[in-house]
């Protein structure tokens, strides 16, 4: 009961903070916060399949693309699509798609979830790293599909002028919902079964766990939130092209979840803030700097060099990521218990 009240208070505080930030920060700060929010949604859901369930997958870019395109096509009015599609006329199906913001974003999630279901049948029947290979290929297929079917996606020109409904209130609250949902999954019989599959699949089966079902559930949940994140991304950026959803996106998310600790949701959240934030905070490194009277000159890309070095140092000192596979309260409890014993 006490825990439930604390949780409720924390959620209310987070909502108020999001609302306050949305009103008081300038658009530059908000765009950074929006980026962090969207990447938090993507990284948290990616962590469910990769970290908690331990199935090495490289799928996020594909599912994010599906979510983004679905949402964008639902949000754009029919005449805007006719104007925009320069190469070929939009397909009738594309023209007939129209929905409000919430159904549009959710439809992106559901589409991604459905495709995850289809993928899981061939992939989870066998063991090993097939998931990584299949999902890697899947990401490429989606991109190539988007490039070569201009009647549906406007090809390489992408979709522009997507209504920008997604402000920090939407994105922040969705990120909060994702965080809470992920924690609720992890601390339930489903989360326990996912961890069991990660630790020892044979032993999990011997406990009566249908490992195929558990892996599929984790994969579909992950895909749903990645689709939703993609939809928010489309509305936030107002323009999407197939090249945005390259493997680089997956790679960025992989860095985040490994840094945060595979299996730790609070670690992932912290890592998202650190990685996405430092991309901005380190921007001064690109400019000309004066160190003891010596001008370094402007080196565009210097921040990426420093960023990479910081990452390497972090991984050297925290092999299992910032939080390992534990959540923040668990870590604190362990610390206090150790202090008590001394």
């Amino acid at each position: 009961m006490r825990n439930a009240i604390i949780k409720l208070l924390l959620i209310i505080a987070a909502v108020l903070l999001i609302g306050w930030a949305n009103r008081h920060y300038d658009s530059y700060t908000l765009s950074i916060l929006n980026n962090i929010g969207i990447f938090a949604i993507l990284a948290l859901s990616y962590n469910l399949i990769n970290g908690v369930t331990g199935q090495f997958s490289l799928e996020p870019n594909g599912f994010v693309a599906i979510g983004a395109y679905f949402t964008a096509l639902f949000l754009l009015p029919a005449d805007a699509k006719t104007d925009m599609f320069a190469l070929v006329d939009p397909a009738p199906l594309v023209l007939s798609m129209h929905a409000g913001f919430i159904p549009a974003v959710i439809s992106g999630g559901i589409a991604a979830m459905f495709i995850a279901l289809l993928l899981s049948f061939p992939v989870f029947r066998v063991r090993g790293d097939y998931l990584a290979i299949v999902t890697l290929g899947f990401g490429f297929i989606i991109r190539i599909f988007a490039l070569n079917n201009p009647a549906y996606t406007n090809g390489a020109m992408g979709l522009n002028d997507i209504p920008s409904t997604a402000d920090f209130l939407w994105i922040g609250i969705t990120a909060l919902i994702t965080f809470v949902v992920m924690l609720h999954i992890v601390y339930s019989r489903y989360g326990r079964a996912m961890k069991a599959v990660r630790d020892d699949e044979d032993a999990a089966t011997a406990m009566g766990i249908n490992t195929f079902k558990i892996k599929t559930i984790a994969f579909m949940t992950s895909a749903f939130f990645e689709g939703v994140g993609g939809g928010l991304l489309a509305s936030f950026l107002t323009t999407i092209t197939p090249d945005q959803f390259s493997f680089l996106l997956t790679f960025q998310l992989l860095i985040i979840i490994v840094l945060g600790g595979l299996g730790s949701m609070s670690g992932t959240l912290l890592a998202t803030i650190l990685v996405m934030g430092s991309m901005e905070w380190l921007r001064f490194l690109d400019d000309d700097m004066v160190i003891f009277g010596w001008h370094t000159g402007a080196h565009p890309g210097m921040r990426m060099v420093v960023f990479s070095i910081l990452l390497i140092i972090m991984m050297l000192f925290a092999r299992k990521g910032l939080f390992g596979d534990k959540e923040l309260p668990e870590l604190l409890r362990e610390k206090f218990r150790k202090k008590g014993e001394q």
């Binding site: 019989r189 326990r192 961890k195 069991a196 032993a203 999990a204 406990m207 596979d325």
Partner: peptide, 20 residues
């Protein structure tokens, strides 16, 4: 073959999976 990332209690809780 215990689940190595889990506590003793969590290991036993896994056994209850199908009864929940």
């Amino acid at each position: 073959r215990l689940f190595k990332s889990m506590t003793v209690l969590e290991n036993v809780l896994i056994g209850f999976h199908d009864r929940i």
